[in-house]
Design a protein around this nucleic acid. Sequence first.
DNA 1: CTCTTTTTTTCGAGCCTCGAAAAAAGTGTG
DNA 2: CACACTTTTTTCGAGGCTCGAAAAAAAGAG
Lengths: 415, 415
Amino acid sequence: MTVGIRHDDLRRRNRAMVISAVRRNGQTSRTEIAAVTSLSHSTISAISSDLISEGILAEARHEQLALKRGRPQVALALEPKAAVVMTVVLSLNFLAATLLDYAGEIVAEEQHRLDTRAMPREDLIGECVAIVRRKLDDPRRDGRRVLRIVLAIQGITDAPARAMLWSPITPHTDIAFADILEREFSVPVTVENDCNMMAVALRWRDPERYRNDFIAILLSHGIGMGLVLKGELFTGTHSSGGEFGHMIHRPDGALCRCGRRGCIEAYAGNYAIWRNARRMDENAEPVDDIGEADMRALADAARDHDGPEREAYRKAGEALGFGLGSLFALIDPAPVAMVGASAAAFDLIEPALREAIARTAGGHHSTSISFDTEPDELALLRGGCAMRALTFVDNEIFAAGNPAQMELAAGHEMA
Amino acid sequence: MTVGIRHDDLRRRNRAMVISAVRRNGQTSRTEIAAVTSLSHSTISAISSDLISEGILAEARHEQLALKRGRPQVALALEPKAAVVMTVVLSLNFLAATLLDYAGEIVAEEQHRLDTRAMPREDLIGECVAIVRRKLDDPRRDGRRVLRIVLAIQGITDAPARAMLWSPITPHTDIAFADILEREFSVPVTVENDCNMMAVALRWRDPERYRNDFIAILLSHGIGMGLVLKGELFTGTHSSGGEFGHMIHRPDGALCRCGRRGCIEAYAGNYAIWRNARRMDENAEPVDDIGEADMRALADAARDHDGPEREAYRKAGEALGFGLGSLFALIDPAPVAMVGASAAAFDLIEPALREAIARTAGGHHSTSISFDTEPDELALLRGGCAMRALTFVDNEIFAAGNPAQMELAAGHEMA
DNA sequence: CTCTTTTTTTCGAGCCTCGAAAAAAGTGTG
DNA sequence: CACACTTTTTTCGAGGCTCGAAAAAAAGAG
């Protein structure tokens, strides 16, 4: 806020700018970078020659860019050998780790099932540590230093992204994953909410559509949200925030998994749809495990004939619609992506959702609000984590480029 | 976003930093500025001597600061003669304009009643133009150039802050006040939402309490909100946003002034409290005019005995509580200021509000959420507009300090 | 093989911030 | 009342950074 800008900040920021331009475009020339950053050619030339000599960027003669007259543009690309990062995804009964090079290509990956809900605390932590260790020891890492680990988890994380506070995947709470992994491996770690990482991934995957303001909603057992405002991930001010699923739809309404009543999730989460489709009382204790096949059967039944199944999806749509309407009243409409396996049933949800949203203040232009479905949540999740880790390296480590920092990076470990 | 930082930006930002340090503290020394900005003493010295020679700052020997040994600190203060700004407040049946010097002292002001709801469009605009003209012609302006006009208005404004789109104070819509006034007076103008300006004022009035994240809620005929997140006014992404009063409290519930059903305002606005206290149907058409005395009588009745009046305030509290709970689920709790004449009845609202918020996901620490009441909304409104106008001059005009810009400022008008 | 076009690098100029040292403007003390 | 001490402010040269202009490089066109 009040802190002045010093002379060295200038170089740091402009280095970051150059790196980010290359990361966004995959391959760019110095001329293009000069154009988008509105810095002079001389400056870009100086910075990129520094970055190349530091082994962060590399010239790649692979250009299909300029078939014009004149000296052809030299493509700049990220140097894959500059570093590697790791992503870890921990979700219900599932653990995966991926090692990626600095250019974002997958170097090694591993995933397997495990019974997260029944595991003792120490075993859960142990499995995470073990999978990280195996990936760190993977020969394909080829001696490249690991500069960042990002762990994505369903549930609530703390604001500095260092701990899981609560998660539906385990009864255990307050697990300081970042501290644990940093102590073990001396690599900087953050713990991120899964929906936030999906939003990050959407932004990289389709920057045209998901530019400065958009919403990713995870339709799953529970309801999650990732929110990007003004081009930045909005993570609440203290904890992870963005608990869209626990906005109140009907005061004193249906029983939610969180113990409260009337949350959106208590109408739109898988367990809520299940409960309504089975004509159970809306105060019935939420069921824990509903197989994907069961949900698909429910959706098929709803498509097939009018009945409690169809009504259950209608109620889900209504809850989501009023919730989005309230959200839009606060932040103005934005594109929405419906993510997750249950997004495949969005056709059943959408009519009631649009009908509800049109009756709210946020629904001014309800017909112009666009919904997109992305059934493959795991792919998004991994992609988002990868970009989160890589941009951290870009902005926090390589942009600084001060000798101490680089020295540290050159050793294979960080304090 | 992607734009690089050039050499002159650096000076501009550091100049802005110095000016803002002086504006915040009223009087500061160079040493203090160096401390808070973490810039070197030489830099601060150079910048402040520039600012003094440009007539933006002035040395004021008025120090009660350092009674220590050593050379006494020289106080720096804003030079009142550097410029003047104007604020215009247009609310229900009321119009006011204030001229302030660069240090924020009131130079001239004027206010009067007028029947905004019955006035033809041209008359409403005409009154605003006339009051601005009278203040511009005020001899107390003393030749100082007017560098900014901020007009605050109840209702919805567009995002670039140039037009009033809709307002409860007049049947007319889409009045491009900024363009109209700029054409007339050649001074840059913005049109701001009243609740947003109140939030701005709170931040300046009590920076300890209202720092980076807080909420100002206007309890009045309608319900408005100003939201500050991460130290910045959050104004939605397209239009003015922040329509807290029109979040949905009960789907298909009570009739709101906006024509929809179940909005928070339809339970907590003055007309809603009135409607409930009179045991009218909750779908009864909202009453337009309720005098302040009538509302006070209602509140007194509610304090005196249990009955429909007390129940009406309870319902208002419940609606506000669930609404805040949903809001807090999204953005995490923050201090709340209840602003406006009706905030004087907050004692009647608070119990039900707290009870409701405790039943929401955002109410984790409901007891620690603090509410503050600020009955004098007009004072806040004026103060907020003044700071908005002055900081614009600070950051957009004086921070740049380039010859062209300064030349422009020296002439008494801007293009 | 030479000319034209476009990209990239080189080089000196002009700012800006910084640290160190000097100057300034007081207070305490014998 | 002079002198030492303390703290603030200014001065000055050094070091960095970006910029514009010019030069060099690397093609295609004729």
